[in-house]
Design a protein around this nucleic acid. Structure first.
Lengths: 237, 237
DNA sequence: TAGGTATAGACGTCTAGACAAATTATGAAT
DNA sequence: ATTCATAATTTGTCTAGACGTCTATACCTA
C-alpha cells in the first residue's frame, strides 16, 4: 500500500473503509474485517487501524463490540414520540418502504393490567395483535396490541389488508386518535422477539408501553412495542 | 497518583480534568496545561493523557490547537437564523445577560451596495451603527447596521438608551419586522473586529449579511455581522 | 445430553520512542 | 526598532510490544 503525502494515513484508511461501506462491500449489519486483517491489508500498525476505526465509530458508521468485532452500523431511524406519531408516515418520510406484518392474533379475556389501560372490566374480551414493523424489509419493531372486541370486531381482516392500524381505525369511524401515555424502558429481547427482529439476543431493545385514545379520550388500544435499539432511536420533544 | 481499578486510567483523568474545569480551575478560554505537564502531574504516558484529552475534545469541552495548546471551550451559543430572530431573546433564553453596546455612529451617503439592499437611491443619507453584542460581558458579535435617516432620525439616542434595535424600532411605530435574507460566510477578522471580539486574529468569524423589512416588506435595516466562531453557532432550520 | 472449563480469537488499555507539523520565542543583523 | 532566520515548544502521527477483558467455541466430564 502506498500513501499520499499531506493526509494522515489513518484518515486515508478511514476514507477507504468508508467507500467500501458506501459501495456495499460491507453491507449494513455485516461484520467488518478484524483489526489484524486490516493491519495486513493496509500494511500499517494496529494502532493506526484503530485510529481509523475510532473515527468511523465516532461518525456512527460502524459499531464495535469488544471480543466480537466491528459491524457496519445500520442507519438508525429517528422515531419521534409525538401524540400523533404514525409509523408509516415516519418511515415514508425517510424514503423507506414501511410494512407492518401481522404474525398472530387471538381473542382473549383482559387481565387486570390490560383492563386498566383500556378502561374496561377485567375479563372483557379483547383482541391481541402481534405484528412486526419493517422498513425496506428490515424489521424495526415488534408490537403486541390489545383492542376491545366490542368496538373493533373484525378489525383483524382489515388490518391484514391495509397493514395499518390507522387505516383500520378509519373503518370503525375513527379518523383521529392520539397517544395518551408512553413509558420507555430498555431490556434484552426474548428469543422470539430477537428472532423476529433478526437481531442478536445480546443486543438490547427499547420497550415502550402506550395507550392510544380516540378524539373523545376513550382508550382504543393498549400496546407494548419492542424497538431494535440498533435500528431505531426514539426522539422525545 | 493511584488509580481505581475497574475504570480505565484515561477515563479517570478525563473526569479529573472535567471537574477542574467545572470548578473553574481552568476557566473558559483558559489554556490547559500542556500534555507533558499533565504527564508529570498524573504520572502516566503521554498517549494516555492524549486519550483523555481526545474524549474532552469529543465532548466539546476543550479545543486543541496544534503547536499552541489546549483551551477550555467557551460554551457555544446556538443562534437560530429565523425570520423573527431577536438577539436579546436568544441570549436571555439561555439564562445569560444580553447587552448591545454602541461603539460609533455616523451619518453618511449610501453607496450602491447599501442603497440596493435598503431600496433607496444611491447618495441617500443613511445612519451607520457600529455595535458589539455581548452575553454576560463576553462579546459574541460585532455588527454594522445601515438605516435610512429619513425614517429613523434620532434613533441613535433611543438605541443608546434601550440597547436594542427592536425597542428602538417600536419608537418609530414598527412593532413587527422580520428578516428578509441572510447570507453567510466565514473569514478571518480584521484587527479591529478581533480586538472588539476579544479573540485571536487567527480564529475565524462567521459573517452574515442581512436585510430586515417591516410588516409591509419595506427594508428598514441592512446589516453586516461578524460572529465569533468560538462562541456562536448559527442554526438554520 | 447438559454443563462447566479451557482455549483461542478479538477488541481495550497502557507504555515507550521517534519523527512530523504548527506555533511561539529567541537572537542576530540591519 | 524591525525583520528575518533559527531554535524551542507543543501537538499530531506512526510504530512496537505487552497485557487485560470480553466473546465464542471446542472439549471434557458427569
Amino acid at each position: 500500500m502506498d500513501w499520499e503525502p499531506g493526509l494522515s494515513i489513518w484518515k486515508q484508511i478511514e476514507k477507504l473503509l468508508l467507500s467500501d461501506i458506501a459501495d456495499g462491500v460491507f453491507a449494513p449489519g455485516d461484520k467488518m474485517p478484524t483489526e489484524m486483517e486490516l493491519v495486513r491489508r493496509f500494511g500499517v500498525n494496529r494502532h493506526t487501524v484503530r485510529r481509523a476505526m475510532a473515527a468511523l465509530v465516532d461518525a456512527n458508521v460502524v459499531r464495535v463490540e469488544q471480543g466480537r468485532g466491528a459491524f457496519v452500523q445500520e442507519q438508525i431511524l429517528d422515531y419521534p414520540l409525538g401524540s400523533k406519531t404514525r409509523f408509516s408516515q415516519i418511515v415514508s418520510g425517510r424514503h423507506r418502504l414501511p410494512d407492518k406484518r401481522l404474525i398472530s392474533s387471538e381473542i382473549l379475556k383482559a387481565n387486570a393490567n390490560i383492563a386498566q389501560f383500556l378502561d374496561v372490566k377485567p375479563g372483557t374480551r379483547v383482541i391481541e395483535l402481534f405484528s412486526v414493523s419493517e422498513a425496506d424489509g428490515i424489521p424495526l419493531a415488534v408490537a403486541t396490541s390489545y383492542l376491545p372486541v366490542a368496538r373493533f370486531e373484525g378489525i383483524v381482516e382489515i388490518f391484514t389488508q391495509t397493514k395499518s392500524l390507522t387505516e383500520a381505525f378509519k373503518h370503525f369511524g375513527i379518523d383521529d386518535y392520539s397517544r395518551k401515555t408512553t413509558r420507555i424502558s430498555a431490556q434484552l429481547p426474548s428469543s422470539r422477539v430477537a428472532s423476529l427482529l433478526k437481531q442478536a439476543k445480546n443486543r438490547p431493545v427499547i420497550s415502550t408501553e402506550s395507550v392510544d385514545v380516540d378524539a373523545s379520550g376513550v382508550p382504543i388500544e393498549y400496546g407494548i412495542t419492542a424497538f431494535s435499539s440498533d435500528r431505531v432511536q426514539l426522539i422525545v420533544e
